[in-house]
Amino acid sequence: MSAHVKVREREKLTLAEEIEELTGINSLKCYQCGKCSAGCPVRVFMKVPPNKVVRFVQLGLEDEALRSETIWMCAGCLTCSTRCPQNFDLAKFMDALKEIAIKKGVISKDDILKFHKAFLKQVEANGKAFEFGLIRDYKLATFNIFQDLDIAPEMFFKGKIKLFSHRIKDRDKIKKIFDRCKE
């Protein structure tokens, strides 16, 4: 169980404790060998390497961890999680940091969060993903209007993007699942 010694009862959990509660991952398991950052395919697009984000959490530098763009740049490829000699699931750890950052309203890569929100909005409403709605909402939210306008007609004529969504029957259930998971 938790390796974090609770000196006295506190109302507020530390970031490390919150991550452990959410994922079962003990932040102290990481011994900073750096193998994750060495093999990370998106490392070159990050200012702070992934292992350093873990270090922030270990040291209680919560703001540094939650505000780092690294947590949003992670592509979730799971290379780090697979190679870690300590079996530390860093990709899941990055997901937990994003989830906590959202709760605290500390968002360093707003465009990526807008993408996720636009995606889930369609799933919540229809039970299935809906690309046209996703792209429309994402573009409106980010003002990134012009990207991919060249391929859009072709996608449409190939039938790869449809104007109407597929909808499942039991949408009430999906709505309920979303509501309960947001609580």
Binding site: T23, G76, I102, H116, C181
Partner: peptide, 11 residues
């Protein structure tokens, strides 16, 4: 997909 696991573990 990615959007759920990146933002809401339970979901």
């Amino acid at each position: 997909a990615t959007s759920a696991h990146a933002t809401n573990h339970l979901l």
